[in-house]
C-alpha cells in the first residue's frame, strides 16, 4: 500500500511540476519577439525538466539517466513527427494530419525503444563501469626452450 501511495505521489508531483514548467516556457514564448519563434517553443523541454527534477528527488540519478536515454528516442520520433506533419496537415487537415503524424511518432519510438537500449549512438556514460585493470593478467615468462 505504501509503495502504491509513493507512486501516486510521484505522478502527482510530476504532473504539477509539468504544468508549472509548461506555463513558464509558454510565458517565455509569449514575451519573446519576433513571434515567428513561437513554433520552436512548442518543442521546449518543459515536461522533461519537471519530470527529471522530480525523478532525481524521488528515485535518484540512475532513473534520470534511464529517462534521458528514453527521451533521446522520443525526441528523434518528435523530429520525424514534425517533418511528416507539415505535408500531412496540408493534405488531410489539422486533426487527421496531426493524428497520422502521431502514429509515425509511435512507430518510430517503438522501433527505437526495441533497437537502441542504450539510447542514441549507444551513448556511454560513467554509469557503465569500465573494465577494471585488476586483477591484472600475470606476466608469464616464456616457456623454457629445451634444445634437443
Amino acid at each position: 500500500m505504501g509503495e502504491v501511495t509513493d507512486q501516486i505521489v510521484e505522478v502527482v508531483l510530476k504532473a504539477l511540476a509539468g504544468g508549472v514548467f509548461v506555463l513558464a516556457f509558454a510565458a517565455l514564448a509569449e514575451m519573446l519577439t519576433p513571434k515567428r519563434l513561437a513554433g520552436v517553443f512548442c518543442a521546449a523541454p518543459s515536461v522533461a525538466l519537471a519530470s527529471l527534477i522530480v525523478t532525481a528527488g524521488i528515485a535518484g540519478v540512475p532513473d534520470v539517466l534511464a529517462s534521458a536515454r528514453g527521451m533521446q528516442i522520443g525526441a528523434v520520433g518528435f523530429t520525424l513527427y514534425c517533418l511528416i506533419a507539415v505535408p500531412l496537415l496540408r493534405r488531410w487537415g489539422a486533426w487527421w494530419g496531426a493524428l497520422a503524424a502521431l502514429a509515425v511518432w509511435g512507430a518510430a519510438v517503438a522501433a527505437g525503444y526495441a533497437l537502441a537500449p542504450q539510447g542514441l549512438l549507444s551513448v556511454r556514460t560513467t554509469a557503465v563501469p569500465a573494465p577494471l585493470p585488476w586483477p591484472a593478467a600475470p606476466e608469464l615468462s616464456p616457456p623454457p626452450v629445451h634444445p634437443s
Binding site: 513561437a38 518543442a43 522533461a48 534521458a68 533521446q72 514534425c82
Partner: peptide, 24 residues
C-alpha cells in the same frame, strides 16, 4: 508552427544527450 517546432525537437535531442552524458 510545426516547421518551427522541428528546430525545437533537434534541440530536444541535444538536451537528452547532454543529460545522459553529464548527469552522473
Amino acid at each position: 508552427d510545426v516547421a518551427g517546432a522541428t528546430f525545437g525537437t533537434l534541440g530536444l535531442i541535444g538536451f537528452a544527450v547532454v543529460v545522459a552524458l553529464t548527469v552522473t
